[in-house]
Structure formats: structure tokens, C-alpha cells
């Protein structure tokens, strides 16, 4: 995802670590973290994904005044263009995610995320019909322009919901 400003804050790191069930104090306790090899609070390995919070156009976040495809009065707030599509509207399913860490993110960093073009390919799936894969490479740079994380995500759109054998 392309993000102009992703300010990394200690509270966000704390909440993110809690959400993945990680109670390591290096993500929450500044005094403790100072005495570890990390030298202070750092972000857990998959935290860069939370840059979605700072993407103004992120499609998987409801926005005031805009249609939202989740349920309200009706099972979906929008009319779907097709009946299949196991991923639902907006982004399909996540097939792969890769991170390369050039250093570890810490509170106070202000990151930018830039997308590079990735490949797309198709495959016939056994449990979900035709699969269309698309790759996105994202470079996270810090306030000094240094590369911090290189991320590669692969999304997949399915012809129908994945069979639960």
C-alpha cells in the first residue's frame, strides 16, 4: 500500500502486539526494552502491515459517507457485481506475505511506503476455480530516506469461495 506518512507510535505498537497475542515487554515497556539488545521498544515483525491505518484510500476501512460492503440493514451495504469471488469485495484473499528487515522499526520513526509494480499470474485452483494472483512490492523508508523494510505481498481473487472439504 502506498502511504505518504506512517508515524510509528508506541501505543500503536502496544495495541498491535496485543492483537497478535504477543506479550513480549520489548513491545510495551520502555524501561525493560532499554536493557535489551533492541535498545528500546521495537515493532513486532508484521507491524508494517498496519500502515493501512495511514493509507487515505484504503478500501478495507469504512469511511464516513461512503458505501461499505459489510452488513447493516442488509447483509451487504452494496450490490455486488458478481455472486462468486471468495475474497468478497475489496482486495480478495491474502496468499503470501514476505518481509525483509534492513533494521527494526521503532517509535518515533516516520515511514513512507512506496509500491513498485509486481507480477500477476493465473492458476486453476482445485477448491475455488480460477485463481488470479497479483503481487505488490512495497518499500518502507524512514525519515532519512533509508530503506527499513522491503515487503512483498501476493493477493488472490478466486472464482468462488474456497471449498471446505
Amino acid at each position: 500500500m502506498a502511504v505518504k506518512t506512517f508515524p510509528v507510535e508506541a501505543t500503536h505498537i502496544l495495541m498491535f502486539a496485543r492483537s497478535v497475542g504477543d506479550d513480549n515487554p520489548v513491545y510495551a515497556d520502555a524501561e525493560y526494552a532499554k536493557k535489551t539488545e533492541a535498545g528500546g521498544i521495537i515493532a513486532p515483525p508484521t507491524f508494517a502491515q498496519a500502515s493501512a491505518q495511514f493509507d487515505p484510500d484504503y478500501v478495507l476501512r469504512p469511511r464516513p459517507g461512503k458505501p461499505w460492503f459489510g452488513s447493516g440493514k442488509n447483509p451487504s451495504g452494496v450490490t455486488r457485481e458478481s455472486s462468486g469471488g471468495g475474497g468478497g469485495n475489496g482486495g480478495g484473499l491474502h496468499a503470501e506475505q514476505h518481509f525483509e528487515y534492513h533494521r527494526h522499526v521503532k517509535p518515533g520513526d516516520v515511514l513512507t511506503a512506496t509500491n513498485l509494480p509486481g507480477k500477476t499470474w493465473e492458476k486453476e485452483g482445485r477448491r475455488s476455480g480460477k485463481l488470479i494472483f497479483s503481487e505488490t512490492v512495497t518499500e518502507y523508508r524512514d525519515q532519512n530516506g533509508e530503506l527499513v523494510i522491503t515487503a512483498r505481498g501476493v493477493g488472490v481473487r478466486t472464482e468462488r469461495p474456497v471449498d471446505q472439504q
Partner: peptide, 29 residues
């Protein structure tokens, strides 16, 4: 979310290798 499973799996990894030690981590769901 696939990324929740990746995040939870990340705890197993960082508990094993130590804080700030990971250089690469990638998965397929």
C-alpha cells in the same frame, strides 16, 4: 486475517531467535 496467523507465528519466531534478530520472514497462507 492471514496476517493474524503470520503475526502470531512471528511471536514463536522472535521468542526463539531473540528480539531485533530477524532479517527475513515470509509465508504462504
Amino acid at each position: 486475517h492471514g496476517m493474524l496467523t503470520m503475526g502470531m507465528t512471528g511471536k514463536m519466531l522472535t521468542d526463539y531467535v531473540g528480539d531485533a534478530r530477524l532479517t527475513k520472514y515470509g509465508v504462504r497462507f
